[in-house]
Amino acid sequence: MAQPHDRGPDFLERFVALLEGDDVFCVATVIRSDKPGMPAGSKAIFLRGGGVEEFGFGDPARTLRSQADRALDEGRPRIIALPEGVEVFLEVQRPPARLLICGAGHIALPLSRYAADAGFRVTVLDDRPEYASAARFPDADVVAEDFIPALHALAPRLFRHIVVITRGHAHDLDCLGEVLHWTTDYVGQIGSRRRLAFIKEELARRGFPADALRHRLYGPIGLDIGAESPEEIALAIAAELVCVRRLGAAHAFSLRGRSRAEAP
């Protein structure tokens, strides 16, 4: 049910707090009004499950519940016309996709920046505190712990995009062995085709046959733009992440070409 008149501190503070969380919500804004007591700029926030918080909106917020639920279901914005010349803009806010970068080395630095700029919420994991430090990664959450226990402690449902770029194939395999159990949209693995072939053989031995990885594991990682430097490789990875998020795995794999996507 509605929680009326939960004004909270201030709309903007509440909005930021919600955006920092992991819930979907809908913001209603009065964009035009001839109605006394309900000026343009009045706001209400609709949460999933029935919660309403109003900021100058008043009781009419409740009458918008079904439209807000529809917007929440469809994920699309809409404008609703109400009596007395009132127009309300409904906008759905989804939490940003989270990206987990395993390995805090040379590529992770530019990748964390590019991915954060492109709207991903980034977490960087490495077992070396001197590499996985907040000073090195101002745009990311940083976890400096051993890979496997750290991956066990993370909430897998939050991370659907994972980049595996540790300093060696043993750590890579440890990370892949964990995250491939998660429901993911993207798991990318650094390495040459030769190294990828070795990693895939090892994964098959650990219960992940090549067939099961065909449209899950992006390796060698990144769109093929001829990247050489860490920054270029990070750009290729960021571009692939955007492609997966915007257009889906089928399109992203089609850009890789059959030979690369289906290499053993």
Partner: peptide, 13 residues
């Protein structure tokens, strides 16, 4: 992002 923009707006105000 909307979050970055909202944080900036909060800070400016």
């Amino acid at each position: 992002t909307d979050l970055a923009l909202a944080r900036r707006l909060l800070q400016l105000r």
